[in-house]
Design a protein around this nucleic acid. Structure first.
Length: 425
RNA sequence: GGAGAGGUGGGUGAGUGGCUGAAACCACCGGUUUGCUAAACCGGCAUACCUUUAACCGGGUAUCGGGGGUUCGAAUCCCCCCCUCUCCGCCA
């Protein structure tokens, strides 16, 4: 959520920048500013009224003490009248605040100045490309066929027990999952992140804080009985640790890492692009989150980008980094780098990580502040990135490393897997 | 799930209807004193919004788990919800 004062002071600029996200905010911004003016004048009236009635209440107290009952009763009446008006004003004020807020949360974050214009992912800006695209011999298979051939992932069994998009990992497949999780966590610890193991369900306030609610509840699994939501990413519980907090400037940046299962309904996506591991309802991900001083958040974003690149380099996967264009940028992000690995058998790039700076957009929603050098409170910046999401990494590893007799494991993972290759049982 | 006890500022904790935005202590910050450190002493120390200001300062309102209510007036009384603790039940 953008700050009201920011909108008020930068109206034209906000509208202009949101156009890069292909969002016409003119009407919303105008009505927000209008509602804000109404809110302020209503509050002024109400505050003045309450000030008066507080004063009267005090007088009544003194009069009672002095034993002047008659005078007290007289003021009491006056005070009663004030109260009626105050009630009306209060409900007016609440109404205004509510409609103000509901408009305010419809306004997306403004993109960073470097974000390119564009509508779809084809307009994203290629930043970096690394690694040789492997030449696959004839007869090389996509990962879903490899998974069956080596009995390491069972999609059908998942369908039977749960439904599509909930695979079983089996034998070396399961151990590969565990190896990747541990590898990613260890790397993050090395890079100075603090490990958390978060709850997999979150409440409404948390969903609101990071921006999943109120709009995207359709993308989350809901436990209606208890009004809880299964997390779509560890970003949600980890960032919400700091909801309603005032941090000390000395504590910044905060660097957290968490492994979690992630649950996404992915309503409305079907077809070839979502086959196998390409899109799941439940998957594993290691997520890095940072809470940063506004002056340093973009430098930190670059560091996070380099960190994720390092992981892919160690896994020897060919990858590229794109900067998302305005149209592809999420509602909450100001700047996002997507990482894509090349999947040799599918002959396409698969998104494996998204590293974003949200500036103070999430922080404003969840009231995440810090006390700065001159001990004023201001909103912090939040950032996060996948480091990494497993399924598509696994897909690429299986496809790119296959040979006649099996699938070889990258060097860095061998101590984690305890085996050098996946082959027929 | 049942019964009981609680939830007050960064922490401990006082406060059962008005002079309490909240005692006291600790922590923290500034100062005095002081070979250094420590101690002692003095002062400061919540958040949000409105208003005022170039800014600081100032004035106002709200906030004692959350929401609603009673009252001229609520941390204090009433109702609902959430959370914590103890006991019982169930259970990995």
């Amino acid at each position: 959520m953008l700050q009201l004062s920011f909108i008020r002071e930068n109206k034209e600029m906000v509208i202009e920048k949101l156009a890069i996200k292909n969002f016409d905010a003119t009407e919303l911004i105008n009505s927000v500013i209008e509602l804000d003016e109404l809110r302020r004048s209503t509050q002024k009236q109400l505050d003045d009224l309450l000030a008066k009635s507080n004063q009267l209440a005090k007088e009544i107290g003194y009069l009672f003490k002095a034993g002047d009952r008659a005078a007290a009763e007289k003021i009491k009446q006056e005070s009663g009248e004030l109260k009626k008006t105050a009630k009306e004003l209060e409900s007016q004020l609440n109404e205004t605040i509510n409609s103000l807020n509901s408009k305010l949360i419809e306004i997306p974050n403004v993109p960073h100045q470097s974000v390119p214009k564009g509508i779809t992912e084809t307009d994203n800006e290629l930043m970096h490309k690394e690694g040789e695209l492997p030449e696959m011999p004839d007869g090389s298979l996509p990962h879903w066929d490899l998974a069956t051939k080596y009995k390491i992932i069972d999609f059908d069994l998942g369908s039977k027990v749960t439904g599509a998009g909930f695979p079983f990992y089996r034998g070396k497949g399961a151990r590969l999952q565990r190896a990747l999780i541990n590898f990613f966590l260890d790397e993050a610890l090395e890079a100075g992140y603090l490990e958390y193991q978060p709850p997999l369900l979150i409440n409404e306030d948390s969903g609101y804080g990071t921006g999943q609610l109120p709009d995207k509840e359709g993308q989350m699994y809901v436990v209606g009985e208890d009004n809880l939501f299964l997390i779509p990413t560890a970003e949600v519980p980890i960032t919400n640790i700091y909801r309603n907090n005032i941090l000390n400037v000395k504590d910044l940046p905060i660097k957290n890492v968490a492994y979690s299962n992630c649950f996404r309904r992915e309503a409305g996506s079907y077809g070839k692009d979502v086959r196998g591991l390409n899109r799941l309802h439940q998957f594993d991900k290691v997520e890095i989150v940072q809470i940063a001083h506004p002056d340093h958040s973009y430098q930190i974003l670059e560091e996070m980008k380099d960190y994720v690149a390092g992981l892919l380099r160690k896994l020897k996967l060919p990858f590229r980094i794109v900067k998302l264009c305005g149209g592809d940028l999420s509602f909450t992000a100001a700047l996002t780098y997507d990482f894509e690995v090349y999947s040799a058998a599918q002959k396409r790039w698969l998104e494996v990580s998204s590293v974003s700076n949200f500036e103070n957009f999430q922080a404003n929603r969840m009231k995440l502040r810090f006390r700065d050098e001159v001990s004023k409170t201001q909103l912090a910046h939040t950032l996060n990135g996948s480091a990494l999401a497993l399924p598509r990494i696994v897909a690429a590893l299986l496809e790119n490393n296959q040979h006649e007799n099996g699938i070889s494991i990258p060097e860095v993972l061998k101590t984690y897997t305890g085996f050098n290759q996946i082959d027929c049982e």
